[in-house]
Design a binder for these strands. Structure first.
Length: 416
DNA sequence: AAACGTCACAACCGCGTGCTT
DNA sequence: CAAGCACGCGGTTGTGACGTT
């Protein structure tokens, strides 16, 4: 299933496009639009498959394409976005007007090769080219962080780009992403990561400020984690995430050798805060700081089952797995129905572009405004009464974060 | 000048997913 | 509900330009 029919067809031209073919395709699309790509080659008089026509148009003929090499700004942005998004080239390309995913992908591949070679790493084997190079690389890494950790901070430019995309012009004063410092307490042998404090704010009326909701700190082993574990034990619903993203039940699955992230039960007032605040979940991996999801909500009502557990996701997952979608806060039957109707795997781009679909109720409430409008402080928000722990739990458990969405966290654990 | 290697870029391929029937 | 179709995405390959030996 899914195989493009044209893939089976013979006698179609392949390889480089001639200027004549380009002209035919350009004229046809300029006149009629592409419509159904499979019908384009026939209508345009081309001996190509629709897929090939689409690629040619998107990657080369589109009039809004930028030509030429990447600017330094673009290069930096790509690098930084790649740190956030991984190999999601289309998502990265969406942040670079006039650039295609293919172009960026090619650039990255060549860039990565250069970088690896520059650092004495064989781009094919990913092993050091020579021992002396290894020493250099180690020294380089050590110099990057006080404790030899890998710098996983989400660069400011990437954050700015994501912020811009998420907030839009209408609410430019509302920070959507931010970093939070993570106190490093652990050796590289960190086995448990836990939340050691929550800082909540219900009173801030400053829409600009982002207050940290949680701060992760680390323990090197069980014995040194006593304080943390004591805190965890005080939490009714400690939540653990194994390195492979498997949901762990604290009392059953936790082992000191499991690199886990703990998210103690969160007071519902944290999960649903007033729209004048933006709540931020900060999570740090191995002493690094990186940005995590930010969401906003209203604290007027919420509930949480004491037995609920939730996977703590990496920032992208937590951000783009529907947290913004829940229109109601009370997990009653109606909400169940509502939740079931909601799309579950919305794409990054939809969030970043503020174009993700909302429920009918939400849409009516927000008058179909995009995300950046929704987070405006002066308007009734889509996030009002939006989030409950129960809903988070349902959504997250129903979401598949075992794949690419887990990439950032995996990176955080250091080339898992 | 020819052979070879490297690089950048264009294009292809296979797969996943959503929509339609 | 299953099958087929179309599209989009990411990985891979092909190709031409350029540099080096």
């Amino acid at each position: 299933m899914g195989r493009h029919t044209c893939c089976y067809k013979q006698k179609l031209r392949k390889g480089l496009w001639s200027p004549e073919e380009d002209e035919k395709l350009s004229k046809h699309i300029a006149k009629y639009g592409h419509g159904c790509w499979s019908s384009v080659p026939k209508q345009a008089g081309l001996q190509r498959c629709g897929k090939s026509c689409r690629l040619r148009w998107i990657n080369y003929l589109r009039p809004d394409l930028k030509r030429g090499s990447f600017s330094e700004q673009e290069e930096n942005l790509i690098i930084e976005l790649h740190a956030v998004l991984g190999n999601r080239w289309s998502q990265i390309a969406a942040r670079l007007p006039g650039r295609t995913d293919n172009e960026i992908k090619n650039f990255w591949n060549s860039f990565i090769k250069k970088m690896l070679k520059k650092r004495g790493i064989d781009p094919n084997t990913h092993k050091p080219l020579a021992e002396d190079k290894v020493g250099e690389a180690k020294a380089s890494r050590t110099s990057e962080g006080a404790s030899g950790s890998v710098d996983l901070r989400v660069p400011a430019a990437a954050l700015a780009s994501l912020n811009d995309a998420a907030r839009g012009p209408a609410s430019s004063s509302m920070p959507v992403f931010d970093t939070c410092a993570v106190e490093r307490k652990a050796s590289p042998m960190t086995k448990a990561i836990f939340l050691d404090q929550f800082i909540t704010s219900q009173s801030s009326s400053d829409p600009v400020s982002v207050f940290p909701l949680a701060q992760l700190s680390f323990a090197t082993d069980c014995s040194s984690s006593e304080t943390a574990l004591a805190e965890l034990s005080a939490c009714p619903n400690p939540l653990w995430l194994s390195q492979n993203s498997r949901l762990l039940e604290m009392n059953r699955d936790f082992h000191c050798n499991t690199v886990s992230t703990c998210l103690p039960s969160v007071p519902t007032t944290i999960l649903s805060t007033s729209m004048d605040n933006s709540a931020q979940i900060c999570a740090g991996i191995d002493g690094m700081q990186y940005s995590d999801a930010v969401y906003s909500g209203n604290s007027s009502q919420s509930s949480m089952n004491s037995t609920d557990t939730v996977e703590m996701q990496n920032s992208s997952s937590f951000f783009h797995n529907d947290i913004f979608l829940w229109p109601e806060s009370t997990p009653d039957k109606d909400d169940q129905v509502q939740l079931e109707k909601e799309p579950e795997d919305l794409k990054w781009s939809q969030y970043l572009d503020g174009s993700f679909p909302m429920s009918a109720a939400t849409q009516s409430q927000s008058q179909s405004q995009p995300l950046h409008c929704d987070v405006k402080t002066e308007s009734p928000s889509v996030f009002s009464d939006l989030v409950t722990w129960h809903q988070i739990q349902q959504q997250l458990q129903s979401s598949d974060i075992h794949g690419k969405d887990f990439q950032m966290l995996s990176v955080g654990f250091g080339q898992v």
